[in-house]
Design a protein around this nucleic acid. Sequence first.
DNA 1: TTGTACGCGTTATCAA
DNA 2: TTGATAACGCGTACAA
Lengths: 342, 342
Amino acid sequence: MSSNDRAGRAGGGRHTLQDVAAMAGVSPMTASRALRGVGRVDPALVERVRAAAAALHYVPDPAARALASARSASVAVLVPSLANTVFVDLLEAVHEVLAPEGYQVLIGNTHYSRDEEEQLLRNYLAHRPSGMLVTGFERNEAARRLIEASGVPCVYLMELTSAPGVHCVGLSQLAAGQAVTEHLLARGRRRIGFVAAQLDARTMQRAEGYRRTLQGAGRYDPALELLSPARSSIRLGATLLKDFLARHPDADAIFFCNDDLAQGALLEALRLGIRIPEQLMVAGFNDLEGSDCFVPRLTTVRTPRAEIGRCAATMLLQLMRGGRVAQSAVDVGFELVVRESA
Amino acid sequence: MSSNDRAGRAGGGRHTLQDVAAMAGVSPMTASRALRGVGRVDPALVERVRAAAAALHYVPDPAARALASARSASVAVLVPSLANTVFVDLLEAVHEVLAPEGYQVLIGNTHYSRDEEEQLLRNYLAHRPSGMLVTGFERNEAARRLIEASGVPCVYLMELTSAPGVHCVGLSQLAAGQAVTEHLLARGRRRIGFVAAQLDARTMQRAEGYRRTLQGAGRYDPALELLSPARSSIRLGATLLKDFLARHPDADAIFFCNDDLAQGALLEALRLGIRIPEQLMVAGFNDLEGSDCFVPRLTTVRTPRAEIGRCAATMLLQLMRGGRVAQSAVDVGFELVVRESA
DNA sequence: TTGTACGCGTTATCAA
DNA sequence: TTGATAACGCGTACAA
């Protein structure tokens, strides 16, 4: 056992930068620089240090790094849910961009709760992340201040704002809501309902798009809105369809705020013998997994969440590097996917 | 500006334990103990320290903590996918148990890849987590050694083993596969197919249950197995049903390894005019969201993943506290849910 | 019960 | 280009 043997230490016998430096015959500082590729270091030394690090299976200690540099190589991503696959797709894309750059992606699920979001923000900020990605603009004052005061680069997801200096990547939920409603009108429908759950900010923006369009066409009837604060699900969609039809047997179309609700409605319609789209048109939102297989195939709006993730992560990367971005607000758009149900 | 003003420091002006101690008129060590609730500290001092911490909005620095104690208050959880809601449910339950105890849950998605799992393990282990939760027992040798050598308490999820000293919470996938097949046999079916995707370890254990049962009944025909390595999805289920029926128009039942495949098959059957269950019985697995709404309602196996998450997290909690657990392998069981499709 | 001394592994800073 | 020194903020070990 050499005097450098570190077995038994708290570190569990892991090698440190000091060991690497010693083996390479340089100072720890040079080893640090060589490994990180910063500053000017003699290429020959870089090679020796790299070899030593590899030989010792050296792995930098993130805690020591964070303590010394006051920054951790992590990015916190706050999403409201993992049950809605929209956010799983988004996280996937974020991870694909950030992981290769050496960032650890911390997933935070707010469960659509302002308080939970604030709590997560406090926790994650304590880790001094290099950057953050948060969903939407709706949050409590404390959370807003935490983001602001932290000075940590932040990109907002899913929605858009024209506020200057705010970085965001998303789409106009309002315009998308209008597009769906206009489509239904163009199909000749006159009693168009809006059925929603969860009632988060984006859902309400779609509702607003629905309202404006119908008001513009002189067809708006507030009674045709069915809003449930419950969690969105296929089962709830089935239930809401029945509730809605019980109150409005004369409706000729329904715009559901999310595909899971619409899918449940399609199944329930099948069960009730309601002919879709002849008797009732059904449109959804988000083009979730399976929507193109339902009977009939669901007309919906494709939201490019993977692109949102990629784009936001790329933008954040630039901000974390201290750079400026060409466009602080990126509209990724949406696509109305007309299938059989409407 | 007092001499204690830390604004402008790397820390971003945040207060440290030292500030809290100074304000409370005690040493940093006493403040540390008071805040963590360890050791004997005069209740009056605890109160003063708490008040000071609150007044200064003190938040402990996790990096400093990890560096000093060689442990971070985090638990790494490795799951193969977030697209399969089984794992989202599981993570949810894990979080509910661990978060209140002050642990940060790090979610790692292996994408069903051995290499990615090994990479994640390396990354997370570098952070010195207090514990780990990993899915199943199938992994490469390097990953196995990493877990072993780390000395970090680990609980295995979803499957069971009788290997001594191994902590796991799950269910017998084989027994569940047998239960489904037996049910189909009991319903009088004789040409029972098995259709699967993803082909991970648990899927193959269900396949084994299917095989053994049919072999025992003298009804096993290898040709009736359709295995696809592709990612499981509703769309794939629809496709596989067609493929399967093209080859085996005489089959009278199909056991799908996961509900999403079965759901897709149900939709495709509707489209093709195949009567379920009269003409063909369909059974799924996992009782995913919506399965009780499909037409016809899907017969499946309910797997208590929330309970797996809760139980595994609770077990891990004990291990992290240095305790022993009563039972190192917990079988949470499963429940055959007979609905209309089989 | 409280406090002192020190080290955790790394990077910033400045000097050489 | 390289290295010595001093933090970073906290907990462990031991002394009082």
